Simulated scan of single mutants.
Amino acid sequence: MNVRAIFIDMDGTLLKASNSISRRNMEAIYKLNNQGVKIFLATGRHYEVTTPYHKEIGLRTPMICLNGAAIHDAETGRVMQMKTVQLNEERFHQLTAESPCNVLIHTANGLYCKQTNEEIDYWTKVGKIPPRYIGDLRQANYQDVLKYSVRTDAPSPQISALFKNEAEVIDWNDGFELLAPNVSKWSAIQSLITEYKISPNEVVAIGDGPNDIEMLCHVGIGVAMGNASEKVKAAADYVTGHHENDGLAEFIERNLLKLNELYAI
């Protein structure tokens, strides 16, 4: 297999728990890039907290953000593609406003949330843009929603299932996320590889979360991190090491660099 592109998840894959990129991961990416492989980030994060890492690596490829709801140009940050989700807002807020959960609403114009937390404080520090609104979201004036995130601190499939006729649902151990129907990292990858004239069979994707499953299933080589759940690992072709042990670099070093060297001969 000739690998022409790799799509890399960020949290739990590229990044350590400290939100840093290890030297080994960085060096492996540099070597792969020098062999002509296109490197893309594909993340659930919004643009402002993706681009600092994208620049740190020195990438010039578009960024897949918010689980595929937005694709941003690397040079300008311009939105190349945006998929908004339409919910019955009154019903959504009836289900979430009085519940002991946090709600994050990512829009084309910024973040709206029920309450702040350590993660949002980190986003503000890195992205240098605070939430546009914090409080009772029934009183917020927002539009062009790209992703709803409901944090319940526990799996909540019985609640998320109520939205499956309106949205693409991603269930997490601490809640769920809602996107426009048929939107995923994979749908965004399809758009980009079509533009670059790359076959899915020439693509590698690597990640650790339920939002990565679809892309792992559809590319030429799907790679799950060692810290991924058993469901994510079952969807992958390979399982590499834990993100705290440079599992991304481990896979690149053992497989992709050697594989592409063979094709370069």
Rank of each mutant, 00 (worst) to 15 (best):
M1T: 10
A5E: 05
A5F: 06
A5R: 12
F7M: 07
G12A: 06
G12R: 06
K16R: 15
K16H: 15
N19Y: 14
N19Q: 14
R24I: 11
Y30L: 08
Y30P: 00
G36V: 08
V37M: 07
K38H: 14
L41W: 04
T43K: 06
T43R: 07
G44R: 05
R45K: 13
H46P: 13
H46N: 14
Y47F: 15
T51H: 13
T51N: 13
E56F: 12
G58W: 07
L59R: 05
T61C: 09
I64Y: 14
A69E: 01
A69T: 07
I71C: 02
H72W: 05
D73Q: 03
D73F: 00
E75Y: 06
G77V: 02
M80W: 01
M82H: 06
T84G: 03
V85S: 04
N88Y: 01
E89F: 01
R91N: 10
R91M: 07
R91G: 00
T96D: 04
A97K: 10
E98H: 15
E98A: 14
S99Y: 10
P100A: 11
C101A: 13
C101K: 03
N102Q: 11
N102E: 14
L104T: 08
H106Y: 15
Q115Y: 06
Q115D: 13
E118M: 04
E118S: 11
Y122W: 15
Y122L: 12
W123Q: 12
V126E: 02
G127V: 01
P131I: 09
R132W: 00
D136T: 09
D136F: 08
L137D: 06
N141L: 09
Q143T: 12
V145H: 03
L146E: 03
L146T: 06
Y148D: 05
S149G: 02
V150H: 06
R151T: 11
D153L: 13
S156Q: 12
S156G: 00
I159Q: 12
I159Y: 09
S160G: 07
A161M: 12
V169W: 07
W172K: 03
W172E: 03
W172N: 10
N173Q: 10
N173M: 07
L178K: 04
V183F: 00
S184W: 09
K185S: 07
K185Q: 09
A188F: 03
S191P: 00
S191E: 14
E195P: 04
K197D: 15
S199A: 13
S199T: 12
E202V: 04
E202P: 13
G209N: 14
P210S: 14
P210R: 09
P210L: 00
N211Q: 04
I213D: 00
E214A: 14
E214M: 11
E214S: 12
C217L: 11
H218G: 01
V219G: 02
V219I: 05
G222P: 08
G222M: 04
A224Q: 07
N227C: 05
A228D: 05
A228Q: 06
S229L: 08
K231R: 15
K231F: 10
T240S: 14
T240Q: 09
H242M: 09
G247R: 01
L248Q: 03
F251E: 02
N255C: 10
N255F: 12
L257W: 07
K258D: 08
L262E: 10
A264W: 01
